[in-house]
Every structure is written in structure tokens, then in C-alpha cells.
Design a protein around this nucleic acid. Structure first.
Length: 428
RNA sequence: GUGGGCGUAGCUCAGCUGGUUAGAGCGCCUGACUGUGGCUCAGGAGGUCGGGGGUUCAAGUCCCCUCGCUCACCCCA
């Protein structure tokens, strides 16, 4: 492949107009849905102090940071996720803000890792968060936004589903099964990886690392596989702590059901999420076929704002990346064909009409229309029409000596080919 | 970080076991068509065969290195 002297950095994308149109298609849908739910848009710096991520996000993210030392000897990182920045921004000003705070953003995020399908070193991620509301209704609202973001792009219940769980419930279930308190993080880690692990390995790991008995392990695995609230209720519903968590989850699922989004939601105790800061309900959105990576992930993180030095505020939110989503949309034929669009293309039949054509073009632009014309003044009418066609003009205004003499121009509709005359007085 | 596959025109690709001036389709440019686009026809431009080194009389083709892409692992925004 002929290469220019400078190559693009690996894992980064160029966005020529056709590609940018696809990206915008997605981002504009995200924005429409966010605003429909009453969220306000914000942004932060793409470069942050390294330590913002080191303790807060867990080792998983830190190992993949795109970080370096700047000229001021500061350890910095390109942001790998938005939530820590949000926490910092709110830490500075949330005390004076009315709650709940509903904010969204579509930042470009970065990671340093070898790229593969659905994962580059850079992507755009839709972040939606509700801060300052502990009610489970906030959790439901946030998941509803995520689901509607995908619906807005044409995806339905046959295309994707949300798998939801609650870390508090999982914690109580694990305690009930007999996992020791200090083994809980280990057990969480194993369950998070369960689906990517062979059965016997999962079993062996639970036995060894989570220090579970053989019968308990089998019981737990069976429960996780059953993927139903009823199974949990049947086995542990009589335990007060479990029952309380089940009640909250039922309320959550009920809210989504009431919104008419029940078909998209499925309880699944195996959803844990890798990030360390999640504290409650967590969820992930997957394509139905299970062929792609998770499209979206999120959950409740009630301690994070405190951790970065802010007001202790409960929070819930999600991130949805553009790369996997773009793949899914392409697969389903839901990406729009790229086309150029122009309201008018002004043709001067000969250079003598050039000044008049420029005047018309500018008048129309002042009125808000998109207008172009051939920059080379000496092009023939044929070439100008070809150019008009290429640029996607809806209508071509032909400015010629005969028409000018009669005080008008010819307006040619480029789709039908039909022509009509417009008085010059209407165009200047 | 580990392993597999792949790099030929702007794009998609063809080039048999090494053998003359490296091809096709699409796109682009020009003309047929100096006041009417799409369609058609004719012509044209465009390649250090990713880069470097080696083997050979001869390398797009074989070998080594390197860069990039891609898939998987690790991990998972």
C-alpha cells in the first residue's frame, strides 16, 4: 500500500467525511436521547493526572493507561474513562448544586493496548450519570437511557439485551453460600470471568481461591447459571439481607417494566463489572447473538466522589463506546449511506454572469441555505452540472444571459430534471 | 506482552511450481457534449508490488529483519 511519509499511530482512526458522518449519526442519537431525559452535557480535559486513575479504577485499567511524563515532570494519562473526571469536576462544585445532578458527555477516551476487533486505542464513549440520588429509580432511569440510545439507532429487543445484577445481592448470596468476608473480592473476580472460563477451571478456582467447599461450589455455579431472580429467592429468600436486596432489584426491574422496556432486561447474577468502584446495581448491554463485546456497561458507584475528595454523593451511570456499537449497526444494516447534500448549486452560463451568480449564491447563504458553485469561472455548463450532481445539489440555479435579460434565472430540480423560472428579485 | 493470518493502483482484488515493458473492475481526469447532470462510448493519469537486507542469471513470487493491518490470548474503557 502506498504510504505517505507519516503513518497514523496504531489504534487511531482518521475520520474523512464518510466516516465522520457515521460517527456523528451515533453521537447525535446519543445527544437527542440524553436531552430527552433532561440530561445536561459537560466535558473535561482529555489529559489528566495519572493518580486520578491509579487507586480509583482498579488495576485492570491502570495497566492499559496511555500515560507518560510531560515536560513539567508530571505523570499524566490520556483519560481511559470519564467517571473519575466527572467525580473530580463535581467534587469541586457539587455542594452548591441542586440534586440529583443529571449530566452526560461524549468524550474521546484512550488506552494503550494492542488493538483487536472492537477495541482500538481510542474511542468515543457516551457517558450518562445521575449523581446525588440513592433511590433505585435513578438506576432504572440510567439503564432506560442506555436502552433508548440503542433504540434511537434502530436496534430492538431482537438485537440486544441488558443483563443486570447487583453487587450487594451477589455479596449476600456469596456470604449465604459460605464465602468468607475477606474472600469476597476474589469470588467477585472469578464470577466476573466465569463466562470466559471453562467449567472445570471455574470450579477449581472457586474451590481453591474462594475457599469454598465442593458442594457449595456446585450449588453456587448452578445458581449463577439459572440466571433468574426466582432461583435466588427460592434458595435464599428467607434470609433477611438477601430478601432486602431482592426487593430492591424487583423494584428496579418493575420500573423498567413499567416503562415498557421489560423485553430488553434480564437478571443475571454473573454480571459483576471489572471496575473496582461499583457498589450496587451493575449492568451490561450485549448483542443478542453474543458475537460482539459488551456494547455498554455501567452501574452504581456510591463512594467514588468521596474517594476523589468531594462531597459523599451516591451516583449511577454508564459508558457506551462507539466502536462495538458501530460494528453492530453495520451488521444490522442500520448505518445510513453517506450522501452529500446541498440546497443549491449556482451555474453561471458564461463568465459574464459570474458576478450575478455570486450575488445570488451569497443572498441564499445569508438566508440559511447551503449553496455552492464552480470555483473555476470558465467551466462550461455541462461541467458545472456534473459538479452540482457530485455535490448533491437539490436544485441548480442557471444564470444565463437570456434569462437575465428577462429578469429571472432557471431553477432545475436535479432529481426530477424539471425546470422552472425564478424572478431575480426573489434572489437578491 | 504472546501466538496465527495478511500487506500488489484511491478502493476491492487477480498475478500458476521465481522468467519479457505488473493486470481487471470500480473511482478519478479528458473528450464525444463551448446553455443542461445521471446513462453510454473512446482515451488518459495513477504502482519504489509496505520498508530494508539476502539468495539467484532473474524476486510481486523464496529467506531474514522491520513497520503496519487483522484475529485470538492476556485483559476489558
Amino acid at each position: 500500500m502506498a504510504t505517505s511519509a507519516f503513518q497514523r499511530l496504531p489504534g487511531f482512526r482518521d475520520f474523512p467525511p464518510e466516516e465522520l458522518a457515521l460517527r456523528s449519526h451515533i453521537q447525535e442519537a446519543w445527544r437527542r436521547v440524553s436531552r430527552r431525559y433532561g440530561f445536561q452535557e459537560y466535558d473535561g480535559p482529555p489529559l489528566e493526572p495519572l493518580e486520578l486513575y491509579v487507586e480509583k479504577s482498579g488495576a485492570e485499567i491502570v495497566g492499559q493507561l496511555y500515560n507518560f511524563t510531560d515536560k513539567g515532570e508530571r505523570e499524566v494519562a490520556l483519560r481511559p474513562e470519564m467517571t473519575p473526571s466527572l467525580a473530580r469536576i463535581l467534587g469541586d462544585r457539587s455542594r452548591g448544586m441542586s440534586k440529583p445532578i443529571r449530566w452526560f458527555s461524549t468524550p474521546q477516551l484512550f488506552r494503550y493496548e494492542r488493538q483487536q476487533r472492537g477495541r482500538l486505542r481510542e474511542h468515543f464513549q457516551w457517558n450518562v450519570d445521575i449523581v446525588g440520588e440513592e433511590d433505585v429509580a435513578a438506576d432504572a432511569e440510567v439503564l432506560a437511557v442506555a436502552i433508548d440510545g440503542l433504540r434511537e439507532l434502530g436496534l430492538g429487543p431482537d438485537d440486544f439485551r441488558a443483563r443486570v445484577s447487583d453487587r450487594r445481592l451477589l455479596r449476600e448470596v456469596l456470604l449465604a453460600v459460605g464465602v468468607e468476608e475477606e474472600r469476597l473480592p476474589t469470588a467477585f473476580g472469578i464470577i466476573d470471568k466465569l463466562e470466559r472460563m471453562p467449567r472445570d477451571k471455574a470450579r477449581a478456582t472457586l474451590l481453591k481461591d474462594a475457599k469454598l467447599g465442593s458442594a457449595e461450589t456446585d450449588g453456587l455455579l448452578e445458581l449463577l447459571d439459572s440466571a433468574g431472580l426466582d432461583a435466588v429467592r427460592a434458595r435464599f429468600g428467607d434470609r433477611g439481607a438477601v430478601a432486602a436486596e431482592l426487593a430492591r432489584l424487583a423494584q428496579y426491574l418493575g420500573a423498567l417494566e413499567a416503562m415498557g422496556l421489560g423485553a430488553f432486561v434480564q437478571f443475571d447474577l454473573r454480571i459483576v463489572r471489572g471496575l473496582a468502584y461499583y457498589t450496587g446495581i451493575v449492568f451490561e448491554l450485549f448483542d443478542r447473538k453474543g458475537a460482539l463485546r459488551a456494547i455498554c456497561g455501567g452501574g452504581r458507584y456510591d463512594r467514588l466522589l468521596e474517594l476523589v475528595g468531594g462531597e459523599p454523593l451516591p451516583a449511577v451511570g454508564f459508558g457506551m463506546g462507539d466502536v462495538v456499537l458501530g460494528e453492530l449497526l453495520a451488521e444490522r444494516g442500520l448505518l445510513p449511506a453517506y450522501e452529500r447534500a446541498l440546497d443549491y448549486f449556482v451555474v453561471a452560463v458564461s463568465p459574464e454572469q459570474r458576478a450575478q451568480a455570486l450575488r445570488i449564491a451569497h443572498t441564499l447563504r445569508d438566508r440559511g441555505s447551503s449553496v455552492a458553485y464552480a470555483l473555476k469561472a470558465e467551466l462550461g455548463v455541462t461541467k458545472q452540472l456534473k459538479a452540482a450532481d457530485r455535490e448533491g445539489a437539490k436544485e441548480v440555479l442557471i444564470v444565463g444571459p437570456d434569462e437575465l435579460a428577462r429578469g429571472c434565472v432557471v431553477a432545475k430540480n436535479m432529481e426530477s430534471g424539471g425546470e422552472r423560472e425564478i424572478a431575480l428579485s426573489e434572489l437578491t
